[in-house]
Structures are given as C-alpha cells and as structure tokens.
Write a protein that binds this DNA or RNA. Structure first.
Lengths: 142, 142
DNA sequence: ATGGGTGCAAAGGATTTGCAACATT
DNA sequence: AATGTTGCAAATCCTTTGCACCCAT
C-alpha cells in the first residue's frame, strides 16, 4: 500500500506514478536511514523481481533533480538519498559509516535562492563528521 | 622549490618529506582550485615521470585523514582536495562544475570537537550549490 | 500509434589493493 | 637490515548509456 505522500510527490513533479517510482519513493519515506542505491535496490527486488539497478539509479537521480528527495554525498564514495526534505544536518560517523539526521539549530534553511558575490545559490547542505554516540560507547568499553 | 609551509605540514603529521609528498602538497598550496586526483597527477607527471596515480590517491587520502588538507565531495562523483584548511564555504556550480571558495559569514569554524546529542563532531562542512556568476552571465547573453 | 518507462548488458570511470622494487635510516 | 614509500597492474566497484521491449494513453 502506497501513502498519499508518495503519490503527491510524484504528481507535484509531473511524473507518472509507476509501480517502480511509487515503491522507491515509499521506501525513502518509510526508511529515513539514508539508503544507498544498492540498499533501495536490494529492499525492493523481492517485491518487484524485474526491477533493475538502472531504474533505481535513474529514478533517484530524477527525484533529487526535482527536489522531492535529497542526494547526499557525505560518505566519500557512496551516494545516498533522503526523502526528508525539511532542513536538517547530516552527521556521518567515521567509525561505523552510518549517516544520522541532526536537528541542530544551525541547519541551513533556504526558502528561495540567494545571491552571494554574484553567484546564485539555491541549495545548502551542512555536514558534520565525527564519531557517533554508539561508537563512542563501544570505545569506552575497551 | 618547495615552500616551508609544505615541509611544515608534513612534519606536523610525522610523514617523511619525500619528493612525491612535497610536490603534491606544494601543488595544493599553490593551486587553490580544488583539483581532483587526476588534476594533481597530470600536473605533476611532467616533473616526476615515474609518478603513479596510486601514490597520488594514497597521499591525498593521507593528507585529509591527518587534516593537512580537506577532502571535498560536493561534486557527486568526483572527489577533490583543498589545501586551504581555514574555515570557508564551498560552492559548486551545477552548470560548469567548478568549485569555488566563498568566505561567507556562515562558514563553519570548529576549533575543538563538540558534542551534539551525545555524538562527537570534529568536522563541519557547508556546501552551497547553484549557478556561478560567470554561467549566469552567459545565460543572460542568450 | 505514440510517448514515456523499464530492463538488460555493456561501457566507462574512479578508486583500492597486493606485491615487488626501491629508498632511507 | 629494517622500515617506510612508491609504482605497476589487476581487481573492484559505482554509475551511466544505448537500445529494444513494454505499457498506458
């Protein structure tokens, strides 16, 4: 069953609500864990056996271009995606590699494009990196 | 001729000042244009004909781990490096692909690690994306 | 029938790794 | 000799692309 939110987001950007697109969007919305393309693919193949990686790649790229999802490149070699498009900060744990959302007061929020030195800025991302709570605890126990 | 700055940075992290490392660091310091690994390699091969890409990859990764350079992943599938380790914001032009430094008042500056929700944060990066001044001008002329 | 979507396989890159050779102490 | 570095080539991914097929209108 697909949520209204998934359908609405597709309609908003004028894309046909195919099974693949709906499932991918739905997965993003219900799994706020910053999945990689591979994560999404692996999660959905069981229910859509003919799904191809290319479709997942293309669809997620589309989503981020149309701003119904965010592409995150905080982890040097693996792009991941976030269906949460409200302002928040991404925190990358260098120990376990997980990406967390932090609702820090410094989260950039850009409602409309702004000009800086003549350059038009229409996207902002703040990345934090360090060691997460869990990994700190593990280290303390050694 | 290598600057003192290059030598000092290598000493600071306890690495031997080999010809390769000094040249790579020197290149970063004198070319604040956020070169990719390939850029660095191409620029230095003429003077060090036996240089290998693997060395450039490994050396730059070392530099960023030891914090004498910054690894930047603002461009989705090409990592680049910055020898400037003072706080500033990186701006990526989606049109021409260049990465600019912006000395915006919002540049994060983290002198010592801070705790957020129990997580230890020791690095911050703020990325802006949009269309740069030059590309804006080109578009206006069409 | 037409246009948008999808899947497959191949191509294209970027990055890492293992190992042998080399340099420096 | 011992340790730390480098270069080469191969191996691994990650991601994109071209093209044919399919589906919905």
């Amino acid at each position: 069953m697909k949520s209204n939110e998934a359908i609405e987001r597709l309609e908003r950007i004028g894309l046909r609500p195919s099974v693949q697109r709906l499932s991918i969007m739905e997965y993003l919305l219900t799994h706020p864990i910053h999945p990689t393309v591979e994560d999404v693919y692996q999660a959905l193949v069981p229910e859509i056996p003919t799904l191809s990686r290319a479709t997942v790649y293309n669809t997620l790229r589309l989503f981020s271009e149309k701003k119904v999802a965010q592409m995150i490149t905080i982890d040097d070699h693996r792009v991941c995606y976030d269906g949460n498009i409200t302002p928040h900060v991404h925190f990358f744990c260098k120990e376990c590699g997980k990406v967390y959302d932090l609702f820090d007061e410094n989260a950039p929020s850009l409602k409309r494009p702004k000009l800086i030195d003549g350059n038009m800025v229409d996207e902002e991302q703040l990345y934090y990196k360090g060691i997460c709570k869990d990994c700190m605890a593990k280290k303390a126990n050694n």
